[in-house]
Amino acid sequence: MAEKKSWRDYMWIISASYITLGFFNILFGWLGLACFFIPLLISVFGGTKSYCNKYCGRGQLLQLLGDKLRLSPYRDIPAWMKSRKFRYGFLVFFMSMFVNMIFVTWLVFSGSRSLEQTVSLLWTFRLPWHWAYSGGVAPGVAQFAFGFYSIMITSTLLGIVTMLLYKPRSWCVYCPMGTMTQAICALKNKNK
């Protein structure tokens, strides 16, 4: 029996829109901060992973692509990918790259580096993305948008690859936000 859908089940539309909008105007990249702050705030103040459990648009999108569109083979993820070592290692790596992006943004803000209108894929490949920016804001503001959108595109790509290889929501296993919020919940609920 199909259960009645809630508005929460349509968050995938927001995720898909985010990726699409950033293609046309990079300043939409800033909106990705919501995926960073909302789960953290929920875990810090609520002590739950409600964001992952109910609201995560990316998880829903991957589920939709993998299950409804039958793109996922539903294979088991390798043991090393669900090990704490890998999950926390990936979190550290991801956050280091995030800090690096903030540093580059600061350099552009301070004027010691010029705005780079590219989207960096997998932290390595620079794709031209100049059509998505037509000025109007401080170069640093635009640089942050390019940087954050790059992170979002890269993680979406990783999510799609592991969806195609393993299970639809394989990304959730090593998602840095998921790892971080689970650790926060564990710490917060330790003495309860």
């Binding site: 459990n53 998880g59 790892t179 919940c185």
Partner: peptide, 17 residues
């Protein structure tokens, strides 16, 4: 990993995170 995929999919609401 407490992602909640199971809880969402369970037709009997038998799983909680």
């Amino acid at each position: 990993v407490a992602c909640g995929s199971c809880a969402k999919a369970c037709p009997r609401k038998a799983i909680e995170i």
